[in-house]
Amino acid sequence: MTDTPAIPARPRPFRPATTEPALVKWSLIGLCLAVLTVLLFAPLYAVFDEALRRGWAFALASLSEPDAQSAIRLTLLVAAITVPLNAAFGIAAAWAITKFDWRGKAWVITFIDLPFSISPVVAGLLFILMFGANSALGMWLVANGLPVVFAVPGIVLATMFITFPFVARELIPVMLEQGRAEEEAALTLGASGWRTFLTVTLPNIRWALLYGVLLCNARAMGEFGAVAVVSGKIRGQTTTMPLMIEMFYNEYLSVAAFTMAGVLALLALVTLTLKSALEWRYADQLAATHRH
């Protein structure tokens, strides 16, 4: 055996086997940031840039117009009805699905998810067909002073359809993971059904519930396609904030359109902030897919 090494030791930096070279790493990071800038950050910036084109005062003035005010009120009203109803549905569905074993469960879960794969426009169409002027039910309702289509009930129904899966989808995996043992323990200790739910289940799912409600609310306030179809877009009566944006935009009232859009964009940013805060703070109490 000679002393001359067959393989020269190269003074190159060691890179662990599970990493990429620094050049590759930073190129990929750069590429991702570039694409996100072009696709996400630039549009977000554009909203505020366009809204403030003529200054704060002008932008804020556009919000205090009667039509804008009524749109804001309607959007808040629709969210205030839709979100609690869907939260109630989500809790009931998650309870029935995770606490009991029954036939047809898989089908019900599929149906709950159905709105995710249906066009918002088709969702609007569904309620036009059911309650519109061309249906017997719709004519009867109009005759009795309770119009659904081109009125608030239709907007609520269409919004409910679009946001239907949000709370249930969030609660089901969390409650499945938590199992039934704690509820069973409470029952053996003599707690009633309601008491068990309020004192054992609800505290365990509160952050997941809030998470679902947050996403449900963001979507409910921002829904456009489904509401556009059922609302009839009557100014000052059935025009929600997203519809108002379209109206302003088509009337070339750019600042008014982008100011209203800015308000909704702020809502989106608040939603994202709260959502991220939940993910960081209460990751263990959310569905596994939201944990980072």
Partner: peptide, 25 residues
């Protein structure tokens, strides 16, 4: 095995320095 890199010292395979060899090599 080349999965970690020593802070100091050498590894010799058949008397030739293998410290700088990558995992693959």
């Amino acid at each position: 095995g080349g999965l970690e890199f020593p802070t100091a010292g050498r590894v010799l395979f058949d008397a030739s320095d293998a410290t700088g060899l990558s995992v693959q090599e």
